[in-house]
Nucleic acid binder design. Structure first.
Ligand SMILES: [Mn+2]
Ligand SMILES: [Mn+2]
Ligand SMILES: [Zn+2]
Ligand SMILES: [Zn+2]
Lengths: 138, 138
DNA sequence: ATTCTAATTTGTAATGATTACAGATTACTA
DNA sequence: TAGTAATCTGTAATCATTACAAATTAGAAT
């Protein structure tokens, strides 16, 4: 999802295209590390010194409604944003908190089998695997 | 996990057995609806009118460390406690918030396949499927 | 049974990510 | 170019959770 596509998506849904929105969308959609609102805010602040946290939150909510990002909540009470909205596994280190995405045909099809077994049609999913990563095992 | 087992588990790990702890453990371990700390607190308050929220939070943390419950965090910023610590799918209605557990040999084995495909050894997992439940479809 | 003490409980205050609000600004429309 | 609703911004409010310190108590030692 590049900038042109974001602009098209915003216009198509009747939203205005502002410099702040473009900056926030680019920042979050290109970041594969499940950033927090604050991380996005700090990244953007360099180019947009007057941007406010409120705008970041509003825009992330908008992206969530447009189904371009998913929220992931953790026990430290901060929300992280996942720009990968396909079926995938978040592999999360219990020590350092690092998150890696794993996505494959195999994962997709095993998940489909699970869903079939339960006889539901999910509108979304969250698949987390908690590990101690290699860096933290030492 | 009955009261006797809870007492044994506490003693084995060097924790004191108090009336408050017993009440909280019984309340959360018997509740399959993924209750919040406040729901536990209200339930207990009838029998233990002087119990405090702080004690509820401390005891739930203890149960988490003993691996008897898992925390599940949602976007409304309240933590829910899951007394089902085996591999299972939480089926969560996006409208009313109701959570149902699904657990089976099939789910277990599909998840094992996913884990194998990723080549990790998880210390835990969270599998959520988001749906609109029958009651909310009308 | 009584005493001792560290663990636990309790009430209250502090925390901090998120949301509400209202006034200033601005993207789009005509 | 002007008009207006949407958006942005700064500040205040929210509220689940955590920190803290004083009071209580479970369990060990005598
Ligand atoms: Mn992810
Ligand atoms: Mn569950
Ligand atoms: Zn790590
Ligand atoms: Zn429902």
């Amino acid at each position: 999802m590049n900038t042109e596509q974001v602009i098209t998506m915003l216009r198509k849904n009747g939203h205005k295209v502002t410099p702040q929105r473009i900056a926030i969308c680019e920042a979050v959609l290109s970041n594969k590390e499940h950033p927090t609102a604050e991380i996005i805010f700090k990244k953007i602040s360099k180019q947009h010194p007057t941007i406010s946290m409120t705008t970041v939150y509003h825009t992330l909510d908008l992206l969530k409604k447009l189904e371009l990002v998913h929220e992931i909540n953790f026990d430290n009470r901060v929300t992280r944003y996942d720009s990968n909205v396909s079926v995938h596994v978040n592999v999360i280190c219990q020590k350092c908190g690092k998150i890696s995405d794993y996505e494959s045909e195999a994962i997709q099809s095993q998940w489909n089998r699970i869903v079939s077994a339960i006889k539901i049609k999910p509108v979304g999913q969250r698949l987390d695997a908690y590990v101690i990563c290699e860096d933290c095992k030492g």
